[in-house]
């Protein structure tokens, strides 16, 4: 059984919001109608987005980490939003595990958004229906697109490539390997929704420099026979 999902690498995301803009652009241009924008040029601009990037500061100054955290529907394997829907408008596709809302059936009761722990469903104030990330179901199977473009808009837009897309049930897929090898985790596991989307944690990226590397023979800055230069950055050994 296939379960398509996004895997988001928090170690790579730079918080540029390119995924947010491209998601909005793609989904506002689709057949389902535009994603509303209220007061776009006034005070309190707000509107419907399927994907948002939030920013958190972890730690206390000066030892802080700024973590950019993209958040969209996690296409849960046991989605809390689906069984509560009284109309069947919210459903999970058997063939690929994508959770969708049928905008023609939705009565706009908002009950599904109460049941989702993650706050990723947004009621569209113009169309009066519940909306959320579709995993770009209208892109990923579109045979009129070149094969390498059959990916979610947000994935294609991400400049550093922080967003991976694939089948998390296929152990050999790039996303499964990333989850396995880079400590992929899910959000709020205690909610028992078994999110399909995973996040890859921040990693400590340290560069350890040994003196023989700094003064190695092919170092272009090395002048043969010259004495040790105090202006060069200290090596690890000198620091310790």
């Amino acid at each position: 059984m296939t379960q398509l999902a996004l895997v988001i690498d928090l170690n790579v995301c730079v918080g540029c919001h390119a995924c947010v803009t491209n998601c909005k652009q793609w989904n506002t241009s689709g057949a389902a109608g535009s994603l509303v924008d209220c007061n776009p040029y006034e005070a309190e601009p707000n509107g419907t987005f399927f994907n948002r990037v939030q920013t958190f500061e972890v730690g206390t100054y000066p030892n802080t980490d700024t973590v950019h955290f993209p958040k969209s529907c996690l296409h849960c394997e046991d989605p809390a939003c689906v069984p509560v829907c009284p109309t069947g408008a919210s459903y999970k596709r058997k063939e690929d595990g994508i959770v969708l809302v049928d905008y023609d059936k939705c009565i706009g009761c908002k009950y599904c958004s109460w049941a989702c722990p993650y706050g990723v469903r947004e009621f569209d104030e113009q169309r009066k229906v519940m909306t959320k990330c579709t995993l770009c179901v209208d892109r990923i199977y579109d045979e009129s697109l070149p094969e390498d473009r059959r990916k979610p808009s947000c994935v294609l837009a991400c400049p550093p490539g922080a967003r991976l897309f694939g089948d998390v049930h296929d152990p050999e897929s790039a996303v499964s390997i990333a989850i396995r090898e880079r400590g992929g985790y899910t959000l709020m596991p205690e909610a028992n929704t078994k999110p399909a989307n995973h996040y890859l944690p921040r990693r400590k990226t340290t560069v350890s420099v040994r003196s023989d590397e700094l003064y190695r023979s092919d170092n272009p800055h090395k002048i043969d026979g010259a004495p040790f230069d105090k202006n060069l950055p200290p090596t690890n050994e000198e620091l310790n």
């Binding site: 947010v20 209220c38 007061n39 005070a43 309190e44 601009p45 707000n46 509107g47 419907t48 987005f49 948002r52 990037v53 939030q54 920013t55 958190f56 500061e57 972890v58 730690g59 206390t60 700024t66 973590v67 955290f69 958040k71 958004s113 722990p117 469903r121 947004e122 009621f123 104030e125 985790y185 899910t186 959000l187 709020m188 596991p189 205690e190 909610a191 996040y199 944690p201 921040r202």
Partner: peptide
């Protein structure tokens, strides 16, 4: 049951939100 730590999966006692992806509020 849920905390900011489980919500974003970062196990640090001190986390402060700086941006929520909108300025004028959202649904």
């Amino acid at each position: 049951t849920s905390t900011l730590q489980t919500a974003i999966g970062i196990r640090h006692p001190h986390i402060v939100q700086k941006a929520q992806g909108s300025m004028g509020g959202s649904y």
